[in-house]
Design a protein around this nucleic acid. Structure first.
Lengths: 354, 354
DNA sequence: CTGAAAGCGCTTACAG
DNA sequence: CTGAAAGCGCTTACAG
């Protein structure tokens, strides 16, 4: 940049030199810095009249406490860190919003750090950055990361959004149960088997959904078609489904999320296959499913409950801080999923040819 | 630590007492704390052999610098604060991801604080919380907040994602230009006028799109139908469009975002009106538009460019830190929008009756 | 109810 | 190339 000589202000910065401090307020109000602190934190007893004077001084100077100093000295904070990646995927966005609003109800801020990918390396880096000044940590999007490669910050309460049973507190949807509902429903509409458009091969969530799909088919004595893999995006669902659309044998497709279901629908429409008359389609997440055409049967994940439980498990750890060295209490909560049936799987009167 | 008497550790916390400090590393490596600092920051000259010893000590102790102390002392940080609300709306999620990845390329972390709503009060609170320890601030979602009620943190470089020309640096899409393209295109398909499903009445973005719609219609001598308002959600688009769907006079609908367009399509489909044969439909954002049925013509916002420019304008301020008291340089950038034409507005061979 | 002193963990000049 | 001292702004015991 323009360092004429050495340029010490390369990165700008918060510049403490130009912000009012507790001392400035104290001088103006004619009290000590720690009376300022008492007023700022609403702690201890302060004479109403003194408090008033301090508040006025704060307002006049535009004072707000330096959080770095506060955290450094107090050794705790009222903010929680949240690590995620790919936030525009609707499922995660919903959990994030639920986590934030629940945390807020309990008096905590949430600072979200977005990792560039779901790899263990990127998540580790994000956790390291985010732990700073946080009282606890929520991690989303472990699907593709090998859990044993993750290095959770030591001495920091952690909870993860994950549907597996792990060695740390976790909350997740019942992926297998939800997928089972969808596949059984598709079979019940008369299909002789169900094709699947799954998520990435390395995704744990996808793997769980695929396993449930396979076991339902096997239990019902149905042939098990090859697994098609997408990357959760509509485009990938579209691409995968183009192979299915031209095959008249294909009568039912289970997309592992709603977004890929949108792509599947487009491929079927373009191939001239009618939904649900010719092909039944189901999705997973139930976020965009009601707004596709035809409206799509989907497995509803209870994102708000997941968000609430995540915070709840985290606050449990904060409130009952274990003795250093104590064995951490692990708790894995599985939240049931629910099937919402819509037009994409509803047999109509003209369905006689099935 | 664990005072058995009063239980001071109500909120847990980062517990500095149980984390290794630079001093611990220094003792183990047999150097001073500031050699540790030099190694941690990759600054100054350190004998390779000394560096190695320090790195080993760090690794053994699992040391990572205390960010609060670092920010407090150095008076600057390498993280940027981002304030937003309603992140699951696809447009904002896209900007957020672009901001994060661009910031990362420039060596900055991003800490996202999510405000419960877009009100001035909530945004102000989020800005106050987020400014702590950040070198700069990016604010999204001012649409409904009166800008003059916002209190931006003093002495902190700020940039906002907004399509207006404001008194502070801003970047936004050309809302009017984009809407103009869409409405003119709809008229060009033969419709005698264009109906609109707008966003909330207090949304600036929606107001800009509505104004452009109105002026195109007026310029073309078309009747101006009443404005229907949604809240950006598919459900609200669905509800608004139910009034339009039964009216055979309605031949073209402009939805102020893709999500409401999805609801509009559903209402039209349910009413048995064919798209595009009976009714043309266009959306805005071009995020989900390609995956609706039929694929929807939409105004594409260049979210990645917006994200890049936001960071760019912020870094300009950081690099050329004005003298205290200097008049801040204001720059408002408008990013052009583009119309992507798809099936929902394409006249087909069977369209003779128009 | 209020204040003087100490220190959280780090980095910044300043010496050597 | 390395270290001893000072201090960022705040809060925590401890006195009064």
């Amino acid at each position: 940049m323009n360092d004429t000589g050495k340029g010490t202000s390369r990165r700008g910065g918060i510049g403490w030199s130009d912000r009012p401090t507790a001392k400035d307020v104290a001088v103006l109000a004619g009290v000590s810095t720690q009376t300022v602190s008492r007023v700022a934190n609403d702690t201890g007893n302060v004479l109403p009249e003194t408090r008033q004077r301090v508040l006025e001084a704060m307002a006049r100077l535009g004072y707000s406490p330096n959080a770095a100093a506060r955290v450094l000295r107090a050794g705790r904070s009222s903010s929680l860190a949240l690590v995620a990646h790919h936030i525009s995927r609707t499922g995660e966005a919903n959990i994030i919003e639920a986590v934030c609003s629940t945390a807020r109800e309990h008096g905590y801020d949430v600072q979200l750090t977005i990792a560039p990918s779901g790899s263990a390396a990127d998540l580790n880096q994000a956790m390291t950055r985010s732990r700073q000044g946080a009282a606890g940590l929520v991690v989303l999007g472990l699907e593709t990361a090998a859990v044993n490669q993750l290095r959770f910050p030591p001495n920091l309460p952690v909870v993860v959004a994950d549907s597996r049973t792990l060695s740390l507190p976790s909350v997740g949807s019942d992926q297998a149960g939800g997928a089972k509902l969808a596949v059984e429903h598709l079979l019940a509409t008369g299909a002789s088997t169900v094709h699947i458009v799954a998520g990435p091969e390395n995704s744990v969530q996808s793997t769980q959904r695929v396993a449930a799909w396979r076991s339902v088919l096997t239990a019902a004595g149905c042939p098990v078609p090859p697994v098609l893999h997408g990357d959760w995006s509509p485009a990938s669902g579209y691409q995968a489904a183009q192979q299915l659309a031209d095959d008249q044998q294909v009568r039912a497709v289970f997309a592992a999320n709603d977004e890929m279901a949108a792509g599947v629908l487009r491929a079927l429409h373009e191939a001239g296959r009618r939904v649900p008359e010719d092909v039944r389609v189901a999705g997973f997440d139930d976020v965009s499913a009601p707004w596709l055409w035809p409206p799509v049967t989907s497995v509803r994940q209870d994102f708000s409950t997941i968000g609430e439980l995540l915070i709840s498990l985290l606050l449990d750890q904060l409130d009952n801080r274990p003795e250093p060295g104590a064995v951490p209490v692990t708790q894995s909560v599985v939240v049931p999923a629910q099937l919402i049936v819509r037009g994409s799987t509803m047999a109509t009167a003209t369905d006689g040819h099935w």
